[in-house]
Design a protein around this nucleic acid. Sequence first.
RNA 1: GUCCCGUUCGUCUAGCCUGGUCAGGACACAUGGUUUUCAUCCAUGCAACAGGGGUUCGAAUCCCCUACGGGAUGCCA
Length: 438
Amino acid sequence: MSEVRVRFAPSPTGFFHIGSARTALFNWLYARKTGGTFVLRIEDTDKERNTEEALQVLIDGMKWLGLDWDEGPDKGGDYGPYFQSERREIYDKHLEILRKNGRAYDKDGAVFFKVSGKPQVIQDEVRGRVERLEEKDFVIYRSDGSPVFHFVNVVDDMTMGITHVIRGEDHLSNTSKHTELFAAFDAPTPIFAHIPLILKQSGPGKMSKRDKGALIEEYQQQNFLPSAVRNYLCLLGWNPKDNREVMPIDTIIEEFSFSGVQKGSAKFDEKKMAFINMETLRGLEIGTFSWMASQALANAGVIKGGVDEDYLQTVMQLAQPKVNGLDTIADYVGYFFTEDFSYDEKTTGRLQKKGNPVELLGQVKTALASVDDWKADSLDAAFTALAQAHGQEKPFAWFPATRWAVSGAAGGPDLLPLLEVLGKDKVIARLAKGIEQF
RNA sequence: GUCCCGUUCGUCUAGCCUGGUCAGGACACAUGGUUUUCAUCCAUGCAACAGGGGUUCGAAUCCCCUACGGGAUGCCA
């Protein structure tokens, strides 16, 4: 373990915002890169909003993204408690220090902090030297007796031995308040790194919880790969300075540095997110892919109960190179697992316009019924023989109707392997069912 | 209003520190190809240094100004 101690200090609001998630991620990356400690501290001072469920959303999201913490809720640690609501004694003790220093005074029923009047110099790891004068004394305890954010934040960072404060740029202007406080406690100032904000993809301003893609819960629900979401989030505001984009997390940890962090804020791009997700999906081991796909299929109600592992994996071998997301996998390969699939009406109409599907399907059914060695090669031979019997070189004329009859769709995996995997009985039965549709 | 931060293709960005490359890559988009089909794949194309002034033989790169965007200026966090 190195000396580095970083923290993520969210306040549980009932949702996990993408911007918060990225702040957590950058802290986590830095901790893992340096062999330091990643602390999760819960800023649950707002009694009204802080429910058990709200905390759970946060914890689920963190776990889903694979951002494990070394100290915090469920983990404990030597610097607890890790809930601000349980640290009141510590705050009050520190208020007394400031009072003794002559840096805190009462006014209008509240407690004010007396600023030094000196410009605060922040050596920011991302932005370089930033200088700002904190002009006015500010409130550290409200008239209702509760301590305010700036005060508790500094006291917590100080007492928890935080060495690096990595947070959103919206806190850059607040930093002069914080350095004033650290100095007043005669405590060393942590190293700051202010990371850019994530802006909404269209229109002005930062992502708000109402924007599409703003909440980690959405990605969980839509069966995005957590590693892909995490990868994309890394790329929003950081890059390894070469052209690599889709990378394993170990590589990102290895390459991560503040010099690679962007100064300007970045717009969220759902298309790129989807692309990274697809790329990540393609790179999965077939076993992993099959397992995840089966979860998605089960959620969609396509799979009920157990499925034969070998069959599942064979189907997924066809699907993996072509599918672009797990949220649509049920549409793409659902018919492999259930007879309860629907025929695409547009395709039905198109087939009727183009020729006589009933006749075509009847011919295919007869041709395939006599195939005993049910392999793609033999099926190819049977189709070719059928074509040649009708004076055609290639059997392409029979393909669209066949695909439609067995899958209900106009597109999908390669037809012959598809038929092979589906098996003779199902194919013959579905050809018959297809004929009845007209 | 004041203070702080920022600004390269539509988007994410490389290049800037240590001036000299047709300003590179990716997503998106367009066209063509492959494919029975398709959500894949391949090829090609489109497209940017916010504006103005300096410094310099030469500026995306260094300096200044302006504009625009964001943040702070709360007894919110």
